[in-house]
Simulated assay, not measured.
Amino acid sequence: MKAFAMIPARYAASRFPGKLMQDLAGKPVIVRTYQAALGTGLFDRVIVVTDSEEIALAIKGCGGEVIMSREPHETGSDRLAEAVEDLEVDIVVNVQGDEPFTERESLAKLLQVFREDPEARVDLASLMTELTDPEDIANPNTVKVITDREGFALYFSRAVIPYQRAEEPRAVYYKHKGVYAFRKQALLDFRRLPMQPLEAVEKIEAIRYLEYGKKIKMVRTSVSGIEIDTPEDLERAKAAWI
């Protein structure tokens, strides 16, 4: 099974433009993320896919591999789908460029899903971590996920799901971490399928896979890390960096 880590990296983030080129302990955030993915030792190749010459130069400057996007893209999945079309690869792991604390344990669990799936039931695998802080649960920037009994995703939302209707039983909440592992064909399918209303309303690309019947296996992890979505997140990452 040939597996690549691919890091979609656009410069113009809506909430924190240029965040991937912000300094984190002497190196840009995107370089820290690339080196973390490479350091897991799990992948045949680690590739940054970007529309930014500045990001490309930073990755090439540390000896990394870059693919430049030929077209503008609305989602990370679209960007990766274009990049993998001509690559010989079985599983593509999408590592978010703003995740400099990417670690081996969680990514290894994602790859194991496909090794244990001889019938190819799983189109994608992704990570979730339990939420306990009420502010995080209520935060619309925190995407929540609910699953069936086998751990397949039923729905993703920025709203609080499930809804706590009565005091008992107590609801358990899970945050969807934006780290995916795809079969190559799932990525190629995503690119050719138009966005549907639920994805458009929620602004969550994973919903497109569900709307078209793809099976997403969710994997629990206790590693939360720090996603750099805001300047405040960057300051927390700097404080946590050792």
Rank of each mutant, 00 (worst) to 15 (best):
M1I: 14
M1L: 15
K2D: 08
A3R: 12
M6Q: 02
P8G: 09
A12M: 14
A12Q: 13
A12R: 13
S14F: 08
P17R: 01
K19S: 13
L24P: 04
P28Y: 08
P28W: 10
V31N: 05
R32V: 09
T40A: 01
F43M: 09
R45E: 12
R45I: 06
V49T: 04
I55R: 04
A56S: 11
A56H: 06
I59T: 08
I59P: 09
K60I: 13
G63N: 10
E65Y: 06
E65T: 14
I67A: 06
M68D: 02
S69P: 10
S69H: 10
S69L: 12
R70F: 10
R70A: 13
E71C: 15
E71I: 15
E71R: 15
H73C: 13
H73E: 15
R79C: 08
A83S: 06
E85Y: 04
V89D: 04
D90H: 10
D90K: 10
V92Y: 00
N94A: 11
N94V: 07
V95Q: 01
Q96L: 14
D98L: 03
E99F: 15
P100R: 02
P100C: 01
T102F: 10
E103T: 10
E105M: 14
L107S: 06
K109P: 10
L110V: 07
Q112Y: 12
E116P: 05
D117S: 12
D117W: 10
E119Q: 13
V122P: 08
S126M: 12
M128L: 09
E130V: 09
T132W: 13
P134L: 01
I137T: 07
N139A: 06
P140E: 02
N141L: 11
T142D: 00
V143Q: 03
V145R: 03
T147N: 01
E150F: 09
G151W: 02
A153T: 04
L154M: 12
L154W: 11
A159D: 12
I161A: 06
P162Q: 08
Q164F: 14
Q164L: 07
R165I: 15
A166S: 15
P169R: 07
P169N: 09
P169C: 08
P169A: 09
P169K: 06
V172W: 03
Y173I: 05
Y174I: 08
Y174E: 11
G178L: 12
V179W: 01
R183L: 02
K184G: 02
Q185Y: 04
Q185C: 01
A186Y: 00
L187F: 06
L188A: 02
R191T: 06
L193D: 01
M195G: 07
P197C: 04
L198M: 08
L198C: 05
E199Q: 04
A200D: 01
E205M: 01
E205W: 01
I207W: 04
I207R: 03
R208Q: 02
Y209R: 07
E211M: 00
E211A: 05
E211S: 03
G213E: 03
I216E: 00
R220F: 12
R220D: 11
S222Q: 15
V223R: 15
T230Y: 11
E232F: 12
E232R: 13
E235Y: 05
R236D: 05
A237M: 00
K238D: 07
A239H: 00
W241S: 05
